[in-house]
Design a protein around this nucleic acid. Structure first.
Lengths: 341, 341
DNA sequence: ATCTTATTTGTGAACCTTCACACTCAATAG
DNA sequence: CTATTGAGTGTGAAGGTTCACAAATAAGAT
């Protein structure tokens, strides 16, 4: 097998060129599939490349082409199911398109943190940027300013904004959930929302209210959770202790639904006989909850590939219109909801 | 505010140098905190840098220094809880040390896939590599060959191998789980294992057998799952349908424990009164399971920081001994286990 | 045979840094 | 008063590639 040189100096274009008696430019042409090279020469060069185990130096190439084949994703809250799914699928899509991905997870969503993340990359020449910004406090203009010309798209940002972004319509999802309960005859419908500094949490929360209002129903109580099961448990406990009467519960995500169901059970309430519960996300475990959870499914796979696709468009044709692309979630009915008896 | 130049040409050392009438080398010295520059000059240069919004070009720097401040993590199965936690914590640790992280998630764990992942990066000059290789089929020697000099550490590889790696002792974890059940008086202890092409699954499986054997107990039946809740459910169904008698169940992870508990309940068996169940991982939701799950906690945070730390050692001092660093999990007792009545 | 034209190959510069070294100038030592 | 040091600064090269262009060769047209 072709082993590398012991001196541990990387093989360069020049080495290959010398090896088969052509100029480095010719080798470069072969490497880049330039048609202006004779069949015979190409064959010889190709063999030399293999023989010497030549690997083009991306760094040198980037220096002159000003492109790196590198995308960056800046994410917040990637310990939560949604963001982590987004990252995973973005990575997959990027790799399919021949790009590598730099991952930066920031722990406090502030402009300063984002600035730091971008700056730490700024000299690094990433070709494009995907930002997963599920919480409030970051405006498009500031970001555009920060990125200074490098194309970017946002994921999971505010619905209805005109920034280049791909989002799942959370409003619609929560409407599906709430309407489902209304259709089952429920009228006393409480909510456990996500943290209200998250766009998605606000959208789901307001849609819950609006959907009830549209049906002429006054909303039940709402308690704010933190996306975790424990947070959902505590929120449900607060709801129960406030002596609110309700026959149905909309949870901001599946984990909180899990915690809520635990709290309900501890309070002697049966799900779904006494209280119907619907979650959000359709995490893989939801089908095995006790009882299996009715929930809203989001297509994170599509979200990832759409974002990367959009970003690549933006990179290739800077005149690509800036828009928000919107995906729609679906309702998954299981056994945690029941018609009001 | 200092906006960038309209011509969209990046500001370079030369621009800054010209701007304040010194040589580019002096500017370079200021940027790199070289002490050999007078106080007054440094001040002037610093102001010019700010004024022009100069950002050092990482690519050009890398070309000459042959270092990139870039780490890569190649991972398999990052849709599972363990691997995804590892990635998250590795990223965090890397960033704390001033490194950026390239993430590559491969879908089929084979040498070919790994080769492709490494090759796609090979010219990219990553300073170090972390491989999360929880499944069998990849040998150290091949990997070392592939990496050709760039330092790497493995995570979650086979316990007891002499490759540079950081692992959590899965054997010990499963021993904790099994012994806990034995201590509670259980003698009929079945198991739902993870996929047996995973190192961790094998370790947990064999430790279960060994721990029972050490106590003079013959092992109950074992069914293989796929780490998911549904897989755990199906495995438990097989166990139940085989009419195996058991009073306790060891699950390979928490998700499978969840599925198993669902299957048990459907079969009319109560957890923990009829069957005690113990999981593995201590996912955040486990505390809200019905009932709250006794499980084994792994410290992924420590795992991440240890790996990065070790890798950095390897990078700085190539004579750092190649070893396996081992962390230990702990037992978390909740309500899914009960003394045999 | 000569002039075009097309095809293949080679040369010089550029990308933006850092490194190794040389230079200048002042202060100290002999 | 010259030699030696040392701090501060500048110069040339190198790192490995691509780009724009020039040169050489081959093929075709007049």
């Amino acid at each position: 097998m072709a082993r590398t040189n012991p001196a541990h100096r990387r093989i360069t274009l020049h080495d290959v060129a010398q090896f088969c008696g052509v100029s480095y430019q010719t080798v470069s042409r072969v490497v880049n599939n330039n048609p202006h090279v004779s069949k015979e020469t190409r064959r010889r060069v190709l063999r030399a490349i293999k023989e010497l185990n030549y690997q083009p130096n991306h760094v040198a190439r980037s220096l002159v082409t000003r492109r790196s084949n590198l995308l960056e994703v800046i994410t917040f809250g990637s310990n939560h199911y949604g963001p982590s799914q987004m990252v995973a699928h973005v990575e997959q899509a990027a790799r399919q398109q021949g790009y590598n991905l730099i991952l930066t997870n920031i722990s406090h969503m502030s402009l300063d943190e984002i600035r730091a993340a971008i700056n730490s990359l700024s000299g690094r020449l990433v070709d494009g940027l995907i930002m997963i910004t599920p919480v409030k406090g970051v405006e498009y203009d500031e970001l555009a300013d920060l990125c200074d010309g490098i194309p970017f798209v946002m994921i999971d940002t505010q619905l209805g904004s005109t920034t280049p972004s791909v989002v799942i319509n959370q409003w619609y999802g929560s409407q599906l959930a709430t309407q489902h309960l209304i259709d089952l005859g429920h009228r006393a419908i409480c909510e456990i929302s996500g943290p209200l500094n998250w766009h998605g949490a606000v959208a789901r929360h307001e849609s819950w209210r609006a959907t009830l209002a549209a049906a002429g129903i006054s909303p039940g109580q709402s308690a704010e959770g933190d996306w975790t099961a424990v947070g959902g448990y505590q929120a449900a406990v607060r709801l129960i202790e406030s002596r609110a009467h309700f026959t149905a519960l909309v949870a901001g995500n599946d984990q909180m639904a899990l915690g809520a169901m635990r709290a309900l059970r501890e309070a002697g309430l049966r799900v779904p006989q006494d209280v119907s519960v619907v979650g959000f996300d359709d995490i893989p475990e939801a089908v095995c909850f006790e009882p299996p959870l009715t929930t809203i499914r989001q297509d994170f796979d599509l979200l990832g590939s759409q974002s990367v696709e959009y970003l690549l468009d933006l990179m290739k044709r800077p005149d690509t219109p800036l828009q928000q692309r919107v995906l729609y979630p679906t309702l998954i009915e299981r056994q945690s909801t029941l018609p009001l008896s």
